[in-house]
Amino acid sequence: MRHTMRIFLLCLIIFVSAGCATNGQHQPGPFQAPLHRGLPEDPTLERHFLVHDPWEGFNRNMYHFNAQLDRYVYLPVVRTYEAILPDSVQQGVSNVFNNLKEIPIFVNSVLQGKAKKASVSLGRFVFNTTIGLGGIIDVLGNGGIPQENEDFGQTLGFWGVPPGPYLVLPVFGPSGVRDTGGVFVDAAMTINPSYGLFQDMSWIARESASTGVYGVKAVDARHQVKFRYYETGSPFEYQLVRFIYSKKRELDIDK
């Protein structure tokens, strides 16, 4: 966790010093519409699609922050990574980190009493770690057995814990109070592969190696997520993402 914090702070410094380019204050033009449509006191249209979001001001600030971080720091790094490494190497890196996720997936499947998912996850971990050379090759995935989707947030949801208010996390993005708790539990169950590999090295070498691993992990995580901020093109994207995230989580828990 300390390493993640360190990288996060580093990004923050680069981000702030890069400075959001300000090109002056936007001013309204000379044209004035003859009619103002009027804003409703209590917007009703979204009622069917509404998500409990009492901290919308904070969340919108965070959404804005994440999008700027993405544009000025995170994505340029990811694009460089994608330009330098061949696709096959990128896939291998993704496979290694995904393979380590099998541990929390297995545990959460067991906690929900989902025997089939648990056995798929266990089988994937065992075969991909051995035949797949430490997870570099997703042997079972290529054979048509993809990774299951389970996490501690879903386990809580399965046992009846309500999602709680919508919450946009720094860097991680859309979440909820319940799922945020889940993220920490899952992180505790994921091993940093450098702990085993660099055990015999000096403290400095070990620390920098594991920081490096966290760095690659962070870049790979963004590389794997297809989502790009403001790609919907709509100025109302925040509402759309909020609805889709909440709906998707609700459906995942039922699966």
């Binding site: 001013q27 309204p28 519409a33 917007p43």
Partner: peptide, 28 residues
Amino acid sequence: TGAGYISPRGHVIEKNESLSPYLDAAVG
């Protein structure tokens, strides 16, 4: 344009402001 058709003229929408009322008005 700041023409005041949906958003009141002269009002600057802050980044933390909810856009729900604007969506509601614009969809009309």
